[in-house]
Design a protein around this nucleic acid. Structure first.
Length: 742
DNA sequence: GGAGAGGCCTTTTTT
DNA sequence: AGGCCTCTCC
């Protein structure tokens, strides 16, 4: 009996089909990781392929690590020379070797979102751009999207078509790219972009990697963007042994440039491609799958498929709506505790999924007060905390002084009396001489008007110099500890004597142990490599399977994971699907939200609970939400639950009690009006008509004054389009917008 | 040059 | 509601 006998016929077919392009459409829970790992084993053991010639690409380090581990277990010998890596780390590896061929230095730094913002701020200031009109964030988003599409500054400029804001963006883009170049830095998107550029411009490098990667596998293919698609196309260009695995129904990263067409039109790109569908699900009960199938079938533009399982029946999908988000959170924490007490699910078997990170706060509170062990994924990344970034900036400076941003970040931390004025003087000198900021720091005696600051800067330079010299002898950990001593960083925090400072100290300790861990496990530890790894870490990477805590995370983070007991919190229109997508002109945005819902449902193995709240604080404002439209897409017979669980109900809700009302609110047409407090909207059964009409001038709290250009009765509320004088044209629901006629 | 106060904006999701 | 930025005053 071989290990391949355990696979079902489709899986086996996918494993054995090794030559030429192959598309595996793998539904949720259909065992795709299993197929990929078996396939690697098959290539090595049965086809005699040298593992050195195999590349497997994933999106997260966690996925890469798991795949590596499973292949190692299966193959035993030689598997370690397979490249299993994320898109980003794969590109970093290639670029560290060859980027000098396209005009960067091989010891480039990698900028994170924070660094990008700093750079953008400088540029916006320098170009005198009114950030009230054009936000830094908007520029960065535009640049990021352009890079995802492999559009460089020049090409961007040529495509503006005379559109003024785009011309502006083109200018900013060019500047931004110049600053990065000057700082010898790449941002996240550049890692892919520059790698493609390198492969396109240098046939020698391309040839060597094509020759190396004779067999390529790509996981989560539906999430690839154009740049990643090109990268793969180039690498696989010679041998064409390209196996991509994905599920168009789980494509949820369009905002990050993912192009669902990459998977939908794979067969056009590779006409000789073999297509294999994996539809048997090994994860969930039939009821959960039915719910998932019922929701996703409302999407158009998808490859037709339906999951099935041998696990018939199962629990129904639980549903409850609460008065407030507070009660919702309390219920979830209580339910988790109850199931644990009864011995049905351990804490580690439960997960709470939500649409926005902000929702985690209330849940966290309730988990704390009930003493339930939990873990929140996402929110503020460990490596973006201030104290961690400070220390990493020191380490970057020690490693390679060419990262101006890092140097400037810590030149006055702790306070050395080097302020903005001195920094500017140094920068001016650096600009004049065409040298880096740090190099300029070493020549303070040449800098005009630097005065007393010269000595202070010298002190800083000497500190770095000494630490740098000690790296080879002492190693990273010892040097980091020494750096903390010399700067008094931890001591200062200790002196603060408050909780926040204590938390920071804990984080620093954690960083130290991560460094120690790296030095223990890496073959040839170097500071540079450590910094690379650290900058490519994702939140999800820190999730450990064997710990017994409840996991709280966004629906996005949950992709690829599974839990016996899953809660989907905040099933409310306006939150999920988000307000943005409801009001968007483009219906495919709503489809993307629906896919997200599908991802959420299919995470559950045994038990799924959906919850909603009638009222919730959003952005400091009280929102009244009706239940999510996605909930209504789940057939009634699969649902079980009640609408309101609370002691007293306000008068306007008294008609809506019990299960019958729950169904009515879920599936009925008039539920929206019934949910609204009377005092605000008059007769609850009528659609409240706004006090303004088309052509009127109105005022909005945030967007200012504008003219109403359109108004349609959109079923339960009026949808109003307003052309604002300064904020552009917005489409919104009258009840939410609360605008007044002028 | 640094600390503190007040105003403003944000969030949908992230490698 | 909270974080960040800017302004002001020392």
């Amino acid at each position: 009996m071989s290990k391949y006998d355990m696979l079902n016929p489709e899986q086996r077919e996918a494993v054995f089909y090794t030559e030429g392009p192959l598309l595996i459409l793998a539904g949720a829970g259909s065992g795709k990781t299993r197929v990929l790992t078996h396939r690697a084993a098959y290539l090595i053991e049965e086809k005699g392929v040298n593992p050195y010639h195999i590349l497997a690409i994933t999106f997260t380090n966690k996925a890469a690590g798991e795949m590596r581990e499973r292949i190692d277990d299966m193959v035993g010998f030689g598997a370690e020379s397979i490249w299993v890596s994320t898109f980003h780390s794969c590109c970093v590896r290639i670029l560290r070797r060859y980027i000098d061929r396209i005009g960067y230095d091989n010891n480039f730094s990698i900028y994170d979102a924070d660094d990008q913002k700093h750079v953008m701020k400088e540029i916006v200031k320098r170009l005198n751009i009114n950030t009230k009109m054009y936000k830094e964030r908007a520029f960065l988003n535009a640049i990021s999207s352009a890079k995802d599409e492999l559009i460089g500054p020049e090409e961007y400029k040529s495509r503006t078509g005379g559109d003024l804001p785009k011309e502006q963006t083109a200018r900013v883009y060019r500047e931004y790219q110049e600053v990065l170049r000057k700082n010898n830095a790449l941002d996240f998107d550049d890692l892919i972009f520059k790698c493609v550029e390198l492969l396109q411009k240098d046939p020698q490098v391309l040839e060597s990697y094509q020759e190396r990667f004779q067999y390529i596998m790509v996981d989560e293919y539906q999430d690839t963007n154009t740049a990643q698609f090109q990268l793969i196309r180039l690498l696989a260009g010679k041998y064409r042994n390209l196996c991509v695995v994905g599920d168009d129904d789980q494509s949820i990263y369009r905002f990050r440039g993912a192009n669902i067409q990459n998977i939908l039109s794979f067969e056009e790109q590779y006409p000789d491609a073999k297509v294999i569908k994996l539809e048997q699900n090994y994860r969930s009960t039939q009821n959960i799958l039915d719910a998932a199938n019922a929701v996703i079938k409302n999407n158009r533009g998808r490859k037709d498929k339906a999951l099935w399982t041998e696990e018939q029946g199962g629990e129904k999908v639980h549903f409850q709506q609460f008065e407030t988000a507070y009660e919702e959170a309390d219920f979830i924490a209580g339910d988790v505790a109850r199931l644990e007490r009864k011995g049905i699910f351990d804490y580690g078997e439960s997960a709470v999924l939500y649409r926005t990170n902000a929702q985690s706060r209330l849940l966290e509170e309730k988990f704390v007060s009930r003493n339930i062990p939990y873990r929140i994924i996402g929110g503020v990344n460990f490596y973006s905390r201030k104290e961690i970034k400070d220390i990493l900036a020191y380490l970057k400076t020690i490693d390679n002084g060419s990262d101006d941003l890092a140097v400037k970040r810590i030149i006055n931390i702790p306070k050395r009396g080097i302020g903005a004025t001195s920094i500017n003087r140094v920068q001016t000198y650096a600009d004049e001489q065409g040298i880096s900021f740090f190099e300029a720091c070493r020549m303070t005696e040449q800098i005009p008007k630097i005065g007393k600051a010269a000595g202070k800067i010298q002190g800083f330079v000497n500190l770095i110099r000494v630490l740098r010299a000690e790296i080879p002898e002492l190693g990273i950990q010892r040097v980091t500890e020494k750096l903390l001593e010399e700067t008094g960083y931890v001591e200062d925090l200790k002196a603060e004597h408050d909780e926040e400072a204590d938390a920071r100290i804990e984080n620093i300790d954690e960083l130290i142990s991560k460094i120690a861990d790296y030095e223990d496990t890496a073959e040839e530890p170097t500071l540079g490599e450590f910094l690379d790894e650290v900058s490519l870490v994702a939140d999800i990477d820190s999730l450990e399977d064997d710990k017994n805590y409840v996991t709280l995370m966004t629906l996005h983070s949950a992709k690829g994971l599974e839990f016996p007991n899953v809660y989907m919190a905040g099933m409310e229109d306006g939150l999920f699907p988000s307000y943005m997508t409801i009001t968007a002109d483009d219906p495919t945005e709503l489809e993307e939200e629906r896919r997200l819902c599908y991802v959420g449902i299919t995470r559950a193995k045994k038990r799924l609970t959906m919850t909603a709240a009638r009222t919730r604080m959003q952005r400091g404002e009280m929102q009244y939400n009706r239940t999510s439209r996605f909930l209504k897409e789940v057939p009634e017979e699969l649902l079980e639950g009640q609408l309101v669980k609370q002691k007293e109900r306000p008068i306007y809700q008294q008609a809506n009690t019990g299960y019958a009302a729950a169904r009515k609110a879920l599936h009925g047409k008039d539920s929206y009006a019934a949910m609204r407090p009377r005092k605000e909207f008059g007769n609850a059964s009528e659609i409240p008509k706004p006090a303004y009409q088309v052509g009127d001038r109105v005022r909005h709290r945030k967007f200012g004054d504008g003219t109403v250009t359109a108004m349609t009765a959109g079923g339960r509320d009026y949808e109003v389009t307003v052309d604002f004088d300064t904020a552009g044209t917005k489409k919104m629901f009258a009840l939410f917008a609360k605008m007044v006629k002028l």
